[in-house]
Design a protein around this nucleic acid. Structure first.
Lengths: 179, 179
DNA sequence: CTGATTGCAAACACTTTGCAGCAGA
DNA sequence: TCTGCTGCAAAGTGTTTGCAATCAG
């Protein structure tokens, strides 16, 4: 994907993988996906999925590695990354990009993906979900004969707390954080 | 988000830097910014800004380095990155994230930033601009008492060309992958 | 049994940084 | 002159990959 036209990797379907059953356990979804791809359900994959499902909100690959180790599981980083990719293909995870340091992940199986307000001052991330946004997305796509598979909407700015903090210390370190 | 708040870098103001004059040349904007920050306007910075302004649409740092070399200018990669950061601070550029490989940049000085439709099949990027989207963004921010500075909206999916290509070769590809 | 999977470590690619000499203002 | 700037090369970091041993189905 580097170099020429960069083809994007595993982008999940807009509402997660087809939900065969209304409340099918996510683990079953994953096993079904693996089976369909002639891939194997290994203990490592089970552990990683488990750790993934324990996360609340966005998380990074490194966080998973740490959590797994804390649970006494030894899984290599390579396997974490490889499994993360499968989980995306299976429609269970969505990869989120909002800085050039690393990727973030979000569980989307069986629900709408979130969008985010990101405070550039504190780094705080606020989730939100907007039906209007999804309609607008579809409208825009229709205008371009484009078939949407997923989207990312990130709003960067100042959270309420950051604003009041900024007021108190009255413009001194404003640019500092930017570099 | 986990692991220490990651403070986001130079995020431009929502409509670019304050436009002192209606059609002030971008170079002048940059010089004014540099002067204000007690920074210097060097030949390297001038060349980089020039190369930046020649770009159409999104571009990567590497592309700039190549273009500069092709124009017979010798500018180190380090200086390119350092200048790119200043151009963001000056409200001339916006950094765009849509993969975990590298950053992309877009000129926003004096105009609305674009949003993008990204074809996951061909890698093609289609720009669009939506006033409705900006209104919705502001509405969402109001609901959260959040002050927006900039946003990124990326829609991943299939471009019209990719869809027709998929249709043509659909039969064989489907059978190939084993259903 | 056989092909997929794992861990490891090396490889990778983009980006950042320390430093010594250079040069705007 | 006095800072800030540049190029270079090395360092940094998240992620990917080659390979031999191992394991799921």
């Amino acid at each position: 994907m580097a170099g020429g036209p960069h083809i994007l990797p595993n982008v999940p379907r807009i509402s997660g993988g087809r939900p065969a059953l209304p409340y099918e356990p996510i683990c079953a979804v994953f096993r079904r996906y693996l089976h369909g791809q002639k891939l194997k359900f290994t203990p490592e994959r089970a552990m990683i999925l488990d750790a993934v499902l324990r996360q609340s909100g966005l998380f990074e690959a490194e966080r998973l590695a740490v959590d797994l180790r804390r649970l006494g599981h030894r899984v290599s980083r390579a396997t974490v990354y490889r499994t993360l990719a499968h989980l995306q293909d299976a429609g269970i995870l969505k990869q989120v990009f909002f800085d050039n340091k690393q990727s973030y992940y979000e569980v989307i199986a069986g629900r709408q993906a979130y969008d985010y307000l990101i405070c550039v001052s504190t780094g705080k991330v606020i989730e939100f979900s907007s039906e209007k946004l999804r309609s607008l997305r579809d409208e825009i796509c229709r205008q371009h004969s484009f078939e949407p598979l997923s989207h990312q909407f990130h709003i960067f700015g100042l959270s309420p707390e950051a604003k009041s903090a900024a007021n108190k210390s009255s413009g001194e370190a404003d640019r500092k954080s930017g570099g």
